[in-house]
Amino acid sequence: MALLEVTAATGLSVVTGTAVTALLCVGPRQVSRAMTDVDDRVREVAPYLGAALALLAVKQLTQGYRLRLSRALDWNITDELYALEGGFVAGLQRLTPEATLEFFTVSYMIGFAFLLVAAPVTYFLSAEGGRRYLKELLVAYMLNYAVGTVCYTLFISYGPRNHLETVSGLMYRVYPQTQDLTAAVASNTNVFPSLHTSLSVAVLVVAWRSRRTHPRWTPVAAAVATAVVFSTMYLGIHWLTDVVVGVALGVGSVIAAARIVDRAEPPSVAADGDQRREPAGRAGDD
């Protein structure tokens, strides 16, 4: 019952936040225009969206097998992560006011899901140039999940809350129902690298790349991504090392995604060409 309630609350919050973001960052008139050619838009991005959904399906279907393989390999790197950074996360928890716990819990649970959904929806509804960024983002998602899946299979790693007595699992202690949802999608050994960090950073990097055509979306993505990345450490879920590697993976995935889309798309739909056809800031006009 707790899983259903948390899932429903998270889903409703993400849907509401995404709708508001679309109206503010894309504009009602552009959203209305997008609805008139939604079929063409879907056909254009269908190969990328289909590949991303297929990868997620395979990831979920093979989760049990990968977990057994990971335990058989038994390459536990938790001690190495602790030796590398020591008590950084414990110090971060001590320095952060406890009054921020609810904010960072919401950032971790809802803010992360919001970024993953709101970013592609925003680009899908935007003027023509937005679809280029949507394709880059979907490829970046796939690269993040592919690398993360390999790392989670090869390496066993427990987060600070499970390894150090000086670090509290704040979110799970105060809001234990949240663990039902996180446990349903990932194992507690899925720590290195932080996919919460890498995917949030990927969204932020694409938002920065699209800042001229989507000026209202960029600061939203920056604020939420920053809160998500910080929350992963403050809540005792990830090590600083996980986050640093996650940042590198997020940036690298977008760089690679841009090159992949360049090779896959004809020159006529290159990002520079789209931006020349669309005046700067047009996508955010009402």
Rank of each mutant, 00 (worst) to 15 (best):
Ala186Trp: 00
Val224Gly: 06
Thr226Phe: 05
Asn162Ser: 15
His214Gln: 10
Gln63Leu: 06
Ala72Met: 04
Gly130Tyr: 00
Leu164Lys: 04
Ala8Leu: 08
Glu85Gln: 15
Gly111Arg: 05
Phe114Asn: 11
Thr213Pro: 00
Asp272Pro: 01
Asn76Phe: 06
Leu84Met: 14
Ala113Gly: 07
Tyr133Asn: 02
His238Asn: 14
Phe230Trp: 13
Arg94Trp: 02
Gly284Leu: 05
Gly17Leu: 04
Tyr108Arg: 15
Thr182Arg: 12
Arg259Trp: 08
Leu134Val: 04
Thr10Arg: 08
Val243Tyr: 03
Ser198Tyr: 02
Phe124Asp: 03
Gly87Gln: 09
Pro219Asp: 07
Ala22Phe: 02
Glu80Thr: 15
Gly111Val: 06
Ala270Lys: 04
Arg173Thr: 15
Ala118Asp: 09
Arg282Glu: 14
Met1Ile: 03
Ala51Arg: 03
Arg276Pro: 05
Arg33Ser: 14
Asp180Asn: 09
Val174Pro: 00
Gly129Glu: 00
Leu240Ile: 10
Thr18Tyr: 03
Val220Glu: 01
Phe103Glu: 09
Ala271Asp: 01
Phe124Glu: 06
Pro176Thr: 14
Leu170Ile: 01
Pro160Leu: 05
Glu102Trp: 12
Gly148Val: 03
Leu49Tyr: 03
Phe114Ile: 12
Leu24Phe: 11
Leu164Glu: 09
Arg29Gly: 02
Val254Gln: 11
Glu85Trp: 11
Arg209Leu: 08
Ser200Pro: 01
Val205Ile: 15
Ser194Cys: 08
Ser168Met: 10
Arg41Pro: 02
Glu44Cys: 09
Arg161Asp: 07
Thr10Glu: 07
Arg209Gln: 10
Lys59Pro: 00
Trp239Asp: 11
Val121Met: 03
Pro47Met: 10
Pro97Leu: 05
Thr182Phe: 13
Val247Arg: 08
Asn144Leu: 05
Val251Lys: 04
Ser231Phe: 10
Thr218Trp: 14
Arg71Ile: 05
Leu204Phe: 11
Pro266Gly: 15
Phe88Ala: 15
Leu84Arg: 13
Val38Cys: 05
Asp37Gln: 10
Pro279Arg: 13
Gln30Ile: 15
Gly250Gln: 08
Val147Ile: 12
Leu101Tyr: 01
Arg29Lys: 03
Val206Asp: 00
Val15Met: 14
Leu95Glu: 10
Tyr172Ala: 12
Ala99Lys: 05
Gln30Arg: 11
Leu49Met: 12
Ala46Met: 07
Thr241Arg: 04
Val203Pro: 01
His214Thr: 09
Arg282Lys: 13
Ala256Val: 07
His196Met: 03
Val254His: 11
Ala83Ser: 13
Phe88Pro: 05
Arg263Cys: 14
Val206Glu: 00
Ala118Asn: 09
Ala202Gly: 12
Val185His: 13
Val6Leu: 04
Ala264His: 01
